[in-house]
């Protein structure tokens, strides 16, 4: 595959961007234009991005970090003054022509989506809970538990076994309830300050910090004029849960990756 090239797609928009100000890969960025759509692409070596090479490269974390960072920087730079449909990492086409064909096929959907995304950006909200800490909070506030604790103190060994089990079950249920309520409140609040919201899979427990579990991984599509309101709402939630072993974190603005299912359709044919 040496010497062969593939076309790497970063994003699509309805007006041509100024690529002069965007730092691209060694071969440079260029535009593929079709039916009122402009796609920012670059040529990449098949020896790097061809299926078998990509598979191998993905095992190399340094490569993954360097390449995904480049990808993000390019999309963000274009997004500064254009509404874009961002594509995910390593969306590849064999030729400009095969990309044109996809753009033509989905032209109307791109136009509709770009209108929806105009003047909006994605914000990420993640909620973590310190499970042990939250367990203590629940234990301290739950009246039925203290009642059980009392009963346990004067119970016979046989009865104590069942009471113990009941206490354990109650504790788990109370914890689950507490988390549900917290997630529900965060989701409801953020929905009122977002155009759309996506709930994503949570990261594996212990991913980010010891003893922490992620309980919500949401993406919000927020109007650029509404950012202040969104951030205030997120900060209010953060403050509300601060002493309950629940941490609310937000990041943004991001390209609206989570609101471009069309990009996935186009990438997958």
């Amino acid at each position: 595959m040496d010497g062969e090239h593939l076309i790497y797609l970063y994003c699509v928009m309805a007006r041509p961007p100024d690529l002069q100000s965007v730092e691209g890969p060694p071969g440079g960025l260029y535009l593929v234009h079709e039916v009122g759509l402009w796609a920012v692409v670059s040529q990449v070596e098949a020896s790097q991005f061809g299926p078998s090479s990509l598979r191998r490269n993905l095992e190399d974390l340094d490569w993954v970090v360097a390449e995904t960072t480049k990808h993000e920087k390019i999309v963000e730079a274009v997004m500064r003054d254009r509404c874009v449909v961002p594509f995910r990492f390593a969306t590849l086409f064999h030729t400009d022509e095969s990309l044109r064909t996809r753009l033509r096929t989905h032209a109307q959907e791109f136009m509709t989506l770009l209108e929806e995304l105009e003047d909006k950006a994605e914000w990420g909200v993640k909620v973590h809970c310190d499970v042990e800490g939250l367990r203590s909070v629940v234990r301290a506030q739950d009246g039925s538990m203290s009642h059980l604790n009392e009963a346990l103190r004067c119970a016979s060994p046989g009865k104590a076994y069942f009471l113990e089990k009941k206490r354990g079950d109650l504790a788990i249920a109370a914890l689950g309830d507490r988390i549900d309520r917290c997630v529900g409140r965060v989701v409801e609040t953020l929905q009122t300050v977002s155009f759309q919201m996506r709930i994503n899979k949570v990261w594996f427990p212990r991913a980010t910090r010891i003893h922490d579990s992620m309980i919500l991984n949401a993406a919000c599509l927020v109007g650029n004029d509404n950012v202040r309101i969104f951030v205030d709402a997120a900060n209010a939630l953060k403050a509300h849960y601060a002493d309950q072993s629940v941490l609310v974190e937000y990041t943004g603005p991001w390209p609206p990756y989570n609101f471009c299912d069309l990009a996935r359709q186009v990438a997958n044919g």
């Binding site: 995910r88 980010t208 990041t251 991001w254 990438a267």
Partner: peptide
């Protein structure tokens, strides 16, 4: 964490 935020989005 920042890197993971990025991967969470950019990887398909």
């Amino acid at each position: 964490v920042t890197l993971l935020e990025l991967l969470d989005r950019v990887l398909d």
